[in-house]
């Protein structure tokens, strides 16, 4: 039981992050994986299985566990803990039926100035792959502070090639 719960949390975390990207929501802070908007462990009130019979029974015993299936995801609607970015709090809700994620929804701040901000316009820096390339450039921007470091820089090589 415990293990499958952990697996479900892991999967939901991944799903919520993917959705976050699609909706242009800034993750809290870039090693974001650790602080996922969906945090079922810290939020015992959130799992609300839709099957009412199962919901009334105390969790934690195998016999009373909600419908479980191959994916390890419990059916129900799961609300994530709010994730706060500079524009307010974003909350992600995930709905699971037959062990599959069937719907994901995110609520955006609706109070104060934040209400006027279109969620799609929330600016963010997107993560990408760091590449090393040798491209044809006219100049190079970099942290070169001294004349000594200039001598060894790509900019110096470009300058001497032009001279």
């Amino acid at each position: 039981m415990r293990r499958s719960t952990a697996a479900a949390v892991g999967t939901l975390t991944g799903a919520a992050l993917i959705v976050g990207v699609r909706l242009s929501v800034q993750p809290p802070a870039p090693p974001a994986a650790a602080q996922s908007p969906v945090d079922l462990v810290d939020n015992p009130s959130t799992p609300k299985p839709s099957g009412s019979a199962a919901a009334k029974k105390p969790a934690g015993k195998k016999t009373t566990a909600p419908a479980q299936n191959k994916s390890g995801l419990k059916d129900g609607t799961f609300k994530g803990k709010g994730s706060t970015n500079p524009y307010g709090t974003v909350q992600v809700t995930v709905k699971i039926s037959d062990g599959k994620i069937t719907a994901v929804d995110a609520t955006y701040p609706l109070t104060g100035n934040s209400a006027t901000i279109n969620p799609v316009a929330i600016p963010k820096l997107k993560q990408e792959t760091l590449q090393a390339q040798s491209a044809k450039v006219a100049a190079v921007s970099g942290a070169t502070y001294t004349s000594q470091s200039y001598q060894e820089s790509l900019q110096a090589a470009l300058d001497s090639a032009k001279a």
Binding site: A135, K136, A138, L154
Partner: peptide, 24 residues
């Protein structure tokens, strides 16, 4: 513009490989 008529192309130095750029 660059003498070739296009925009200036500027590389951002790769933070570990001094002779490479990570963005253009």
């Amino acid at each position: 513009h660059h003498p070739d008529g296009g925009p200036w192309r500027v590389g951002i130095r790769h933070p570990w490989e001094a002779d490479k750029v990570s963005w253009v």
